[in-house]
Design a protein around this nucleic acid. Structure first.
Lengths: 248, 248
DNA sequence: CGTTATTTGTGCGTATGTATT
DNA sequence: AAATACATACGCACAAATAAC
């Protein structure tokens, strides 16, 4: 990835505004700078600023009112991001940081193995923490079949505790597996923080967390990864856009 | 209100292309007309055609490749960027029962009003409980702009506390509003049960619940309904399927 | 009450760049 | 190498909604 192409001007403007929003610069429903102000600040035309806002509106980050201005659609200080597709999840790495807390290793996990539809109870597993702006907001445990684990073993960042990275596991897998990842079954519920997770998130054990399980499958329908994540609800909410079905 | 505003030129172009796609005109992965062709066909500038395509791309209807052209996003490969759809939600009523606990009434709610983008703080609101197999699992508070509230006031089941029904609010609205409901922004997080909600769900106050906010908008992008639901996590988990959305 | 300034929305023209065929 | 097609960027003019006076 990383894609050596030059980043377009409007993308730079959009990223700048997005970062300021995430840093809370326009917190209490205050108005964002006008198109004209942003154009001058970045030394670009008003049209380029408008193009940047189109993306931010599409992401659900801001909304605009003719004659009034542009406003953040934020809920509290939650870390907002539009998820709804696998590619969105892969994009998660752009502004968060991941830190391995339990490196990739072989272990016996009956539950994970059965959800991965494995013939025995051996899986390869690792646990990491994700932070935004230096604050941890999510702990994820990933379990994969041994064959997939062998593929991941060649990625040094995953085999050393404390290593940092900006990648996502599905991004790594997608590039290394013979068949691409095609879909994921997802389940969202509430679960109390177990002691280990609480320590990593810096919250009291037993605190309610948002738990998201995702079982990824490749194009052949084979399960390739089970990810169980626990999010701090103060810092993260899961957002998506629902649309109408096509065809009646 | 029917929205007497003129439909913008690019919206007309987008709708035309969308309709042709839905009628199967460009079914088998064939290329869509080029920007220049569409510009001439509609007698507009190439920029206007581009603006129309920006919407279609954002909807996930088409994808574009520089130098090659524009193509329909096929359902089997990608298309639905989302998991559940609004029509799935409308089908919710089939096996659950809804019971009004606070009938439709006018009240001042700054938060709801601002999320509905209303100029003042007055909304119409009602609260109901949803049960499955006789066990309540969800409490929902719906807030709508006064104009929409007037439409709902003609539905007797919503104006009487204790009334039961099997409908959904969006189902009612969709049939009665001038513009159909087109999409919803959804946010999922964890929230403790407030006393009133706890009583209705039969759980201790303060217990962690799964909270789902949905802001529905019509085809003009105007917010028409805000629904805030609290679910008992033991009885309900939110499940979806994620799919790929781009073409590798 | 209209008037005016501000701010976003629409529409188009032009030029240039990049990817594909 | 040339033609085609989409992408970016800037400019301008005017419309429409809002807010302040």
């Amino acid at each position: 990835m990383t894609d050596g192409r030059r980043e377009s001007t409007y993308a730079v403007v959009a990223r700048d505004v997005r970062n300021r929003i995430l840093q809370g610069a326009y917190a209490d429903g205050r108005r964002l700078p006008t198109e004209a102000e942003l154009a001058e600040r970045h030394g670009v035309s008003r049209q380029t600023v408008r193009r940047a806002f189109q993306d931010l509106v599409a992401e659900g980050m801001v909304y605009r009112v003719p004659g009034r201005g542009t406003f953040v659609t934020r809920r509290d200080e939650a870390y907002l991001r539009q998820f709804g597709s696998i590619d969105d999840l892969m994009g998660l790495s752009v502004d968060t940081r991941m830190e391995v807390t339990a490196p990739l290793r072989r272990l016996v996990d009956v539950t994970a193995a059965s959800r991965l539809r494995l013939p025995d109870d051996v899986v390869h597993s690792l646990t990491f923490r994700r932070s935004h702006d230096g604050r941890p907001f999510c702990v994820t445990t990933v379990s994969v079949p041994p064959a997939v684990g062998a593929v991941l073993a060649s990625v040094p960042e995953l085999t050393v505790a404390g290593a940092g990275s900006r990648t996502t596991i599905i991004g790594l897998l997608d590039a290394r597996l013979p068949a691409p990842i095609a879909e994921a079954d997802q389940s969202i519920t509430v679960a109390p923080a177990d002691p280990a997770t609480a320590t990593q998130l810096g919250c009291p054990a037993g605190d309610p967390l948002l738990r998201i399980d995702r079982l990824y499958s490749d194009t052949a329908g084979r399960p390739v990864e089970l990810a169980v994540s626990h999010f701090l609800p103060e810092l993260y909410s899961y957002r998506t856009k629902l649309r109408r079905d096509r065809h009646a």
